[in-house]
């Protein structure tokens, strides 16, 4: 096989509020790149391995990686290659794992710095994360939980577990505004006709109730984050969207000790699964590089079946 000249570094931006599952996904991605069983494989060791190795260590020990502290900025550069389907790719994958606080800060201050701006260009893809059962996910408002704002009688007590903190924007509002930011930035830095690939990643997919799993991650987002789901559907001529469900361990390492023992008895390097609909139907893959490969244009979009150059 001939190896092509290394391509320009490509970025995949990981975007999500606090506790959205970005760090664990990145840790699992690194283990998958090392194992070289998926679409993407490592093409050498990153110059700075500390962040990735620390996260991977947690997963190998049967525990989830801790979330990125607010003052940490990691722009991991991973030399990667792809040899699937006859398409060759050799390049540097830049996967910045920025803490959710910064994602929220950009939303609140309505501006971003060069660190974000410089990543926006041709070939840049994004993965937007939400995590099932995250206590940091702010539920959308509805008539029930804001009824009292208008002075009328409350028909019933607002449901439990629904945050109505006055100053906190619902997660779906933050993510829709982020998509609007990205569209504006891509239009001005690349072109108005460029369709960036945006993967919507539902992390901790194993925690989704069984009866909802069949419908796939798109249906889960439509049910839990309807504003985001509708924005995605209504703007699919401005972006290329795809939904993924990811589970870095295929079970709960924290709450299920029995599962954890079985996980460690097996091969923790190759655990995890990705749920996707790239071929139209909901399918499960053990290739944890799939969302990143798709965001880079190295895996087919729904219906296209092939590889799309960015």
């Amino acid at each position: 096989m001939n190896v092509k000249t290394p391509e320009q570094p490509r970025s995949v931006l990981l975007i999500g509020v606090r506790d959205a599952g970005k760090t664990n996904f990145l840790s699992r991605l690194w283990l998958a790149l090392e194992a070289a069983r998926g679409i993407l494989a490592k093409a050498g060791l990153p110059s700075d391995l500390d962040y990735l190795a620390t996260g991977a260590d947690h997963l190998l020990k049967g525990e989830f990686a801790e979330r990125t502290p607010p003052d940490v900025r990691d722009a991991t550069e991973i030399p990667v290659k792809n040899t699937s389907n006859g398409h060759e790719f050799l390049g540097t994958l830049i996967v910045p794992d920025l803490p959710g606080e910064q994602v929220l800060s950009v939303f609140r201050t309505r501006q971003w710095s060069n660190e974000w701006e410089d990543r926006i260009g041709p070939g840049c893809g994004c993965l937007l994360f939400v995590r099932v059962d995250s206590t940091e996910m702010i539920a959308p408002l509805d008539w029930l939980n804001c009824h009292h704002m208008f002075g009328g009688p409350l028909p019933v007590v607002p449901p439990e577990n629904v945050s109505i903190e006055k100053a906190t924007a619902p997660t779906q509002v933050v993510l829709v505004d982020w998509l609007q930011f990205l569209r504006k930035a891509f239009t001005e830095r690349v072109s108005g006709t460029y369709k960036p690939r945006i993967g919507l990643v539902v992390a901790a997919w194993d925690l989704v109730p069984h009866d909802q799993k069949e419908e796939g991650p798109g249906a889960w987002v439509a049910s839990n984050l309807p504003l985001l789901a509708q924005y995605v559907e209504a703007n699919n001529d401005d972006f290329e969207f795809e939904y993924f469900g990811v589970s870095v361990a295929s079970g709960d390492l924290k709450a299920n000790e029995e599962f954890r023992r079985a996980y460690l008895k097996g091969d923790p390097r190759t655990a995890g699964e990705v749920i996707h609909s790239l071929s139209g139907a909901v399918k499960t893959s053990d290739d944890m590089t799939l969302p990143v490969a798709w965001a880079l244009g190295l895996a087919g979009a729904t219906g296209s079946g092939g590889i799309q150059e960015p």
Binding site: P140, L141, P170, V176, Q180, A222, P226, L227, A234
Partner: peptide
Amino acid sequence: LMASGGKLPSPYQFAGSLTLQ
């Protein structure tokens, strides 16, 4: 709230807003 809850009557969908906040 109709848009936020995915409750706009069919066939309408939320497509964006410059004044979400």
